[in-house]
């Protein structure tokens, strides 16, 4: 290797003896140099995604606000006219909007995964751009955008109802867990899309069909004890409950287990990374 910043430095190929740790001739430790390259690549990809997805001629970002508002507003109105509220007396509109936003993030990340490689394959001509870099930049952007929308809704709901989040950090943590879970799943789906077109068709269907069990529109304490034990196996349920704890706090009981959610996320991401590694070798560009 002749220099830390060169294209040849990181990422050896399959079967290639890996350069042992140590210092590249540029003076930077090799791991730091790789990290530096990866950050630069993800930064550049983020900027590019930003301009193509949320650019001047694109109103896609508007939908981020319209959809949760429409859903929360409609259901809130229905509850208002039917006359019965939610257990714990929490605000109906807040419950539906805050349940929908993390789901929106989940759905956006998962549904965009099958096209991630196809729509960026020309960029894989650059050896220093990996599929993982592409996935990270796309999903970070999605996470940032949805988190922004969430902040706007929380402020608006606070202004209307007078109820402010008890622990805003838990809202962010819940969204971060959801992003981590969706990210791991998106790695597996992106890797699978190299082998079959099936995912393109399936993800939309599955994200809608699983909506009732993901945890966005029910709270764990509403359920009988045995059912509670079952739904707590679903990792996303913990994300929604954490978000609700942040918003409603002591008003309602919430059930979540952060170590369990983190373990699921870690495992999913690990499998996702392994699948991507195999897929990168088999993808024909």
């Amino acid at each position: 290797m002749t220099g830390a910043g060169q294209a040849g430095a990181p990422r050896p190929l399959a079967g290639q003896p890996r350069p042992a740790g140590g210092v590249a001739p540029g003076g930077m430790p090799r791991l730091v140099a790789c990290f530096d390259t990866q950050c630069r690549v993800i930064g550049a990809l983020l900027l590019r995604e930003l301009s193509t997805r949320f650019g001047r001629e694109n109103v896609g970002f508007l939908w981020l606000f319209v959809e949760p508002a429409l859903l929360g507003g409609t259901i809130g109105l229905m509850h208002h006219f039917s006359g019965h509220g939610l257990p714990g007396g929490i605000d109906i509109m807040s419950f539906w909007v805050l349940g929908y936003i993390p789901y929106y993030l989940f759905r956006a990340v998962v549904n965009r995964a099958p096209s991630a490689i196809v729509s960026n394959q020309s960029l894989l001509f650059h050896r220093r751009i990996t599929i993982l870099d592409i996935m990270i930049s796309r999903n970070l952007l999605e996470g940032g955008a949805v988190l922004g929308a969430m902040a706007v809704f929380v402020l608006a709901l606070g202004a209307v109802t007078g109820v402010w989040p008890e622990q805003p950090a838990k809202l962010v943590a819940g969204m971060a867990l959801m992003l981590g879970f969706a990210h791991g799943l998106s790695l597996l789906i992106a890797a699978g899309s190299v082998y079959t077109d099936m995912f393109e068709r399936l993800t939309h269907l599955v994200t809608y069909l699983t909506l009732p069990i993901l945890g966005s529109f029910f709270m764990v304490f509403w359920l009988p004890t045995e059912l509670q034990q079952i739904v707590l196996w679903i990792p996303t349920v913990h994300c929604f409950e954490l978000v609700r704890d942040g918003q409603f706090g002591s008003m309602v009981p919430t059930h979540y287990d952060i170590p369990y959610a983190l373990t699921c996320i870690a495992l999913l991401n690990l499998f996702g990374l392994a699948a991507l590694r195999k897929a990168r070798r088999d993808v024909v560009l």
């Binding site: 220099g3 294209a7 050896p12």
Partner: peptide
């Protein structure tokens, strides 16, 4: 097999 690169290589 495998490839050893000790120079930067274009696309």
């Amino acid at each position: 097999g495998w490839i050893e690169r000790s120079m930067s290589v274009s696309w």
